[in-house]
């Protein structure tokens, strides 16, 4: 394997990580508040609001029902408007975020729903405001589940970022398609796949470690 290929793969790893982490972070900036709003306005939430919930619910369902590859193409004009071009790794972040945000909102909503309603009632009885309940009770009590959700989301976005390679998105997926598929260079294809597996494993391992490390529920003894 020559130096050119190695530097190309290194570039690919960098782009893949850039797209994955970039989209997961921006995705959470949008999706986390969205998920909190869904929980708060839901039927059993802190301040049920049928209309807000229905709108959020509808948006989530619409976006989530569009396959990512189609979303990617559908959003080309929008992407061009925001980043100035429709190819390359920065451009790919746009559809990744649009795809991830409603998914993240759902994952967050599900995590918050797991929090024992008794604890929320206790906080209310102590005179907590809804904001205090969200920040000090819900997000803290659900943190293990939230981090697990974060890990799963990152894994999915890693896969999607590779998928965007088919339309010139950059990163390891792009390399796999260009060299492995169009040029029949199976060895490069295999290497990119192995690299993706390694990256995925690392994400999953770190996520699980952080989640269990922060969980105070199962630690017996002392």
């Amino acid at each position: 394997m020559n130096e050119q290929v190695i530097s190309m793969l290194a570039e690919g790893i960098k782009d893949t990580l850039y797209m994955t982490l970039g989209s997961v972070i921006i995705g959470y900036v949008i999706g986390l508040p969205m998920g909190i709003i869904l929980y708060v306005t839901g039927k059993t939430g802190l301040r049920p609001n049928h209309y807000i919930y229905r709108v959020g619910d509808f948006i989530c369902n619409i976006i989530r029902s569009i396959p990512f590859l189609i979303l990617l193409i559908l959003l080309i004009p929008f992407t061009r408007l925001i980043v100035g071009k429709s190819y390359g790794s920065t451009a790919t972040i746009v559809p990744l975020v649009i795809c991830a945000a409603p998914y993240i909102a759902r994952v967050v909503e599900a995590s918050l729903n797991e929090v024992d309603t008794g604890v929320i009632e206790a906080a209310k009885a102590m005179g907590a405001t809804n904001l205090q309940i969200v920040l000090k009770v819900l997000l803290v009590e659900a943190r293990t589940s939230l981090i697990a959700g974060f890990t799963i989301t990152t894994g999915i976005l890693l896969g999607y970022s590779a998928m965007s390679g088919t339309v010139g998105g950059g990163g390891l997926g792009d390399i796999a398609v260009r060299y492995g598929y169009y040029r029949w260079q199976t060895d490069i294809m295999i290497i990119t796949v192995l690299l993706l597996i390694v990256i995925f494993q690392i994400i999953q391992m770190v996520g699980t470690r952080v989640a269990t490390g922060l969980d105070r529920r199962k630690r017996k003894g002392n």
């Binding site: 008794g118 206790a122 209310k124 009885a125 102590m126 005179g127 009770v137 009590e141 105070r216 529920r217």
Partner: peptide
């Protein structure tokens, strides 16, 4: 809410913050 803070409450399920 201020009034509630002056009324303590305990529950069957304890309702402690697990974390």
């Amino acid at each position: 809410r201020k009034m509630r803070a002056q009324i303590g409450m305990i529950f069957q399920g304890f309702n402690l913050l697990e974390q």
